[in-house]
């Protein structure tokens, strides 16, 4: 079972050195325990571009696809046996990156 752990942030502030160090430690734990699939931090939402080619004529728009109070600042994709394991990892991840984390299962 794979879960997306989305890191939510009110602004596009990057992680502090302390947060980075805690995230590295957490990532190492994910790898050694076999939970690691992928992770990444994202650039600020105003660097985003939206492409819409649903009707065959690609429309390119500057900016994030929706205005929101909170943005996706980064994410982990983890492998976990069930939601309890995923929630426990998300709890440690939230502490490490010092931000709220949304846990959502893949299909």
């Amino acid at each position: 079972m794979q879960y997306l752990l989305s890191v939510l942030d009110v602004d596009a502030g990057t992680a502090t050195p302390d947060e980075m160090a805690a995230i590295d430690t957490f990532n190492e734990r994910l790898r050694s325990a076999g939970h690691w699939v992928f992770a990444g931090g994202l650039a600020a939402p105003d660097t985003a571009t939206v492409v819409d080619n649903r009707d065959g004529a690609a429309l390119v728009t500057d900016g994030p696809y929706l205005e929101s109070k909170e943005y996706l600042a980064g994410f982990w994709i983890i492998r976990a046996a069930d939601l309890d394991v995923a929630l426990a990892l998300a709890s440690d991840g939230s502490r490490a990156c010092n931000r709220r984390v949304e846990v959502r299962p893949f299909r």
Partner: peptide, 14 residues
């Protein structure tokens, strides 16, 4: 079902 909430008694810590 989708998030796989486990069907078990929680661990002692929880």
């Amino acid at each position: 079902a989708a998030a796989r909430i486990p069907y078990r008694v929680p661990s002692a810590a929880d």
